[in-house]
């Protein structure tokens, strides 16, 4: 089935749940509301004419400059039965991006959603195990947000070179092999007594 046909079918079934359809894009996509996505995903898989049984990719993209600022969650679907594909998008508010999980429909969504949570801070409601996946468990923040600033310290270690360190490195001094020369704030330094 062509993309337009798939969109018509979803529009007929979900009405207001499907808010837009971009037919002119390289790969046409439909925008759906976050309230509808759970049911809509299950329908995409179960409907015999759509049979979109494979979630090829789930990504999140940050658009801070869009009006209003948003995070998009993008679902690339594929049907092994009919060999056709479709793209769904959900627009979420940037401050509090929350969307229902689809891991019950496609098992692979479990890890993709954990990755989107880890790197962009999208919260997937109802997810069975929403933990960080690629970054360490004690990491703070979500680095793929466009306003991300590299932290200066990680667990007490100085990880961002200071201007002085750069200067000394340029002068030929070997840095980074001995103890760090910058004592981070509120770190206990043992003394001889």
């Amino acid at each position: 089935m062509e993309s337009a046909g798939i969109h018509d079918r979803l529009k007929a079934r979900f009405g207001e749940g499907v808010t837009a359809f971009e037919a002119g894009a390289l790969q046409p996509f439909a925008v759906v509301t976050s309230d509808a996505i759970g049911e809509l995903a299950a329908f995409c898989k179960a409907d015999p004419d759509l049979a979109l049984d494979n979630l090829m990719c789930l990504s999140a993209v940050d658009y801070p400059k869009a009006e209003p600022p948003r995070i998009e969650v993008v679902y690339h679907l594929w049907s092994y039965r009919h060999l056709h594909g479709f793209v769904l998008k959900v627009f979420l508010p940037r401050e509090d991006p929350r969307v229902p999980t689809v891991e019950g429909v496609w098992g692979v969504a479990n890890w993709h959603e954990r990755e989107a949570y880890d790197l962009l801070g999208v919260v997937f409601e109802g997810h069975s195990d929403l933990r960080r996946i690629l970054l360490p468990d004690d990491w703070t923040g979500h680095p793929l947000r466009k306003d991300w600033v590299d932290p200066e310290f990680y667990n007490g270690m100085h990880v961002k070179p200071t201007a002085q360190m750069a200067e000394r490195a340029m002068a030929g001094e070997q840095l980074g092999v001995g103890p760090f020369d910058v004592t981070p704030p509120n770190r206990h330094v043992p003394t001889d007594q």
Binding site: V61, V74, H76, G107
Partner: peptide, 26 residues
């Protein structure tokens, strides 16, 4: 999954769907 914003010479977003990632998730 590559997003281009049309103004910059670097990609706006590149997401990789790695076959090993999904194989490990099972």
């Amino acid at each position: 999954y590559i997003v281009a914003d049309g103004t910059a010479v670097n990609p706006y977003r590149v997401k990789v769907k790695s076959p090993c990632f999904t194989a490990m998730s099972i």
